[in-house]
Design a protein around this nucleic acid. Structure first.
Lengths: 365, 365
DNA sequence: CTGAAAGCGCTTACAG
DNA sequence: CTGAAAGCGCTTACAG
């Protein structure tokens, strides 16, 4: 009996009249145990309600069935959706998930990683955008490298500078570019962007892709407002945009969550979407199809991302080069985007809207 | 060196030229170590990038810094919101969270609980409605009792039959009753309910509270449709309601998530909310205030619930009687509810709408 | 204050 | 197939 009253394997062995070793083997499904003994052990364990001490097991290096999962904010629908997929994959592999939610503080990410190294988790999943900041990313890398040096497996969702980990990469650039082309296809020629913090790689990529697609039509983004990656961040950013004077017929919010806030701000200001201004987001979190109007977005298969990043981390052999799984974002045009209001200002780009370079994607696909 | 290349405490001790015991004490902030030795150990640990093996530590019974958290579906905004609060509290206490998401399968709840007992977590949090089913709840109880017998602490959110655990209890009955009175106050006299599975205590309580408040006005719920606890469940339930012929001026969905689906179904059917039918939910998940129309609901402080259930589980002494923290749901009237359409059928209850018994809450508060 | 040693609860070569 | 024993990496009385 352990001192907390829990029966130990020794108790089970004694009750079954076998040795510790035999009890262990019997319970771990080893075949090299006589059937009757195995049964006796099983019964004894059952009767004592024996629960193997996972820590002892991990120490004796049998199991190690934990995986660490670090995300920015488990309360955010984007991460909640991904986490759902992660949990499904974990269940399939009989793995325990240790969850870290950083509340978007980069330092917490590092301390979680360190903690999980201490836990000797089998794999570590970094969910969510990395940071452009060199210093932050560097110390995260150091932590991750130590973990990998000890045999740990790391996989990430989204781009993390210099981490060289296996990655599931939503095609943020391409998705935003496709979206831009779709919006051009609707007739828009002037755009504003509500971006998240520019310190996030995801924001940089989405903004970059959006811009470059416009650039090939000779159009520049008129206005960029940086806001927090939250509903209220989107709301505030939209208000700031209105304060500065909206000089665009179409607004792209870097995430759906921000777009929801922006929609509220526009409505409050008496702007109709899409009659007065079109609005698009990115991610396709569940609820946005039920908004009025339903939100145009670039759809990412959130749950899938979660499953895939887990599978990636679990692949047996660690390759020399990081594996990259690219995930295409699909533009979904809904009612929040429409034709620009007639007589809308063309923002100094009255020239023929034609791509400067040959472009395979013209308009929505 | 452990065989995976990780330095052990022994390596640190050797590098610092002290004994294992001293190294251990130095690192664990014991004051009874000479300052210079402590510093040497610290430096050695730093240089070796030493990371204490959490399993060894737990085995030697120092730490045990894990808490298990079991919810129905981490992808659902209700649970994601609560989880956010749990994570916050866990961070505050420097605790690791092992997450279980059952995908609403009761048996998974039990196997997670068993797994967490094996982990020897310090506390176990059961988030989400229990089941009315006696057999299921009984085996969960057995598992929980074994865990508690070994010194584990258990706390739950919502009612779990016979578990006798410390609990944070949203006042589902009272909240639904308050909501009913508020809706009566708007003039409604005929009601339909889109309930979740009646096997959930939460559903039983909300439906019960709603019914009993109506009953004291001599009104019965005209129609009840049972649906899954999801957006699509709400959608389907609403369609079924329409198929049967809507005989109410006001519809109460047992959760906001279901209400979102119902709203979509009504809209598709050409029904205007609230002009043709009023709609109310329960929980106040973040996004519903941004719907059109914003959803009337009974607001629960989700993040708070999460923090509180964690704190409850961490209280040092286990009391003889379970501690119950009741959390009031606040009726929030938004635009999804309004006066009933004039000329609406009164569903066979044309009598004077007055409470049968003295009732302290008349109408919305 | 410091160290040698026992012990936490398991697994797994190593002999039978 | 079975068992005695060593070992996993730590902590913590117990002596100095």
């Amino acid at each position: 009996m352990a001192e907390n009253g829990q029966p130990t394997l020794g108790d089970v062995a004694r009750a079954a009249g076998v040795s510790l070793a035999t009890a262990s083997r019997a319970l771990n499904g080893a075949t090299q145990v006589r059937a009757d003994l195995r049964e006796r052990v099983r019964v004894a364990a059952e009767r004592l309600a024996y629960s193997p001490n996972a820590h002892a097991r991990a120490l004796a290096k049998a199991s190690n069935a934990g995986v660490g999962v670090i995300c920015h904010d488990i309360g955010d629908p984007y991460f909640a959706g991904i986490a759902r997929g992660v949990m499904r994959a974990a269940a399939r592999h009989d793995l325990q998930v240790i969850l870290g939610s950083t509340f978007r503080e980069p330092l917490r990410e590092i301390s979680y990683a360190s903690m999980m190294r201490g836990q000797r988790v089998r794999a570590m999943l970094l969910i969510g955008s990395g940071f452009e900041d060199r210093a932050v990313q560097e110390s995260l890398r150091r932590e991750v490298d130590l973990y990998r040096a000890a045999g740990g497996r790391v996989a990430v969702i989204s781009r993390h500078r210099g981490l060289r980990a296996d990655a599931v990469l939503p095609e943020n650039r391409a998705g935003a570019a496709d979206l831009a082309r779709a919006l051009l296809g609707l007739g828009h020629r002037s755009f504003a962007v509500l971006s998240g913090p520019l310190s996030l790689t995801t924001v940089v990529d989405r903004l970059g892709g959006f811009r470059s697609a416009l650039a090939s039509w000779g159009i520049e983004v008129s206005q960029v407002v940086e806001g927090a990656f939250t509903r209220d961040g989107g709301y505030e950013a939209a208000r700031e945009l209105l304060r500065r004077g909206l000089a665009a017929t179409c607004v792209f919010a870097a995430t759906d969550v921000m777009a929801i806030g922006a929609l509220a701000a526009f409505r409050e200001a008496g702007l109709r979407v899409p009659e007065d201004v079109s609005l698009a987001g990115f991610d396709d979190i569940p609820m946005i199809r039920d908004l009025t109007p339903p939100l145009t977005t670039v759809a990412l298969p959130l749950e899938d991302l979660g499953e895939r990043v887990m599978e990636l981390a679990l692949l047996p052999d660690r390759p020399a080069r990081a594996r990259i799984e690219r995930v295409t974002g699909r533009v979904v045009l809904r009612a929040s985007t429409g034709a620009p209001p007639s007589g809308a200002p063309h923002e100094g780009h009255p020239h023929q809207p034609e791509p400067h370079e040959g472009d395979p994607h013209e308009g929505p696909r």
